[in-house]
């Protein structure tokens, strides 16, 4: 079986890429194939990259406060394209926004202070689920 493939992306205009890069590095070290898109991505670009690379999980990092706006567009676009890839979000997300993101279909929200171990475990579980679902289908 091939390695799990994860897309790590920065949605929107903010340039705070420290967290995204640290997470991307940690996933890589944990054996994932990691596609890092870099900063200033639009939801369209993220979806396009996810399709092109056939990823198992999409990870999005936002530290600008514009997470509700961008993630809702991303989720809508994924639905429109019929793409069933789990999405996780990380960044400076205030607690009251967590249920809002989950309602949109985001599988997990990593708040500041989340450990790399926790992130790796969740991403692995979501990737496994996705592959299993594909096999059954």
């Amino acid at each position: 079986m091939s390695n799990y493939k994860v897309l790590v992306s920065k949605l929107g205009l903010d340039g705070h890429d420290r967290g995204a890069k640290v997470v991307a590095r940690a996933l890589k070290d944990a054996g994932f194939d990691v596609i890092y898109t870099g900063i200033r991505q639009t939801p369209e670009q993220v979806v396009e990259a996810a399709i092109q690379e056939d990823v198992d999980v999409i990870g999005v990092s936002i530290l600008s406060g514009a997470h509700i706006h961008h993630v809702s567009r991303l989720m809508k676009l994924l639905r429109e394209r019929g793409l069933n890839v789990p999405v996780v979000v990380g960044g400076t997300i205030p607690i009251p926004d967590v249920p809002r993101l989950k309602q949109m279909g985001v599988r997990e929200v990593f708040l500041p202070g989340s450990s790399l171990k926790e992130i790796i475990n969740v991403v692995r579980r979501l990737a496994e689920e996705k592959r299993r679902a594909e096999q059954q289908a």
Partner: peptide
Amino acid sequence: DYPTLVGIDSDDPMASGEVGIC
């Protein structure tokens, strides 16, 4: 805000959702 920092106007499509936040 971010649109100003990267030199685009508030009515630019890339600015959507980011105007006045940071």
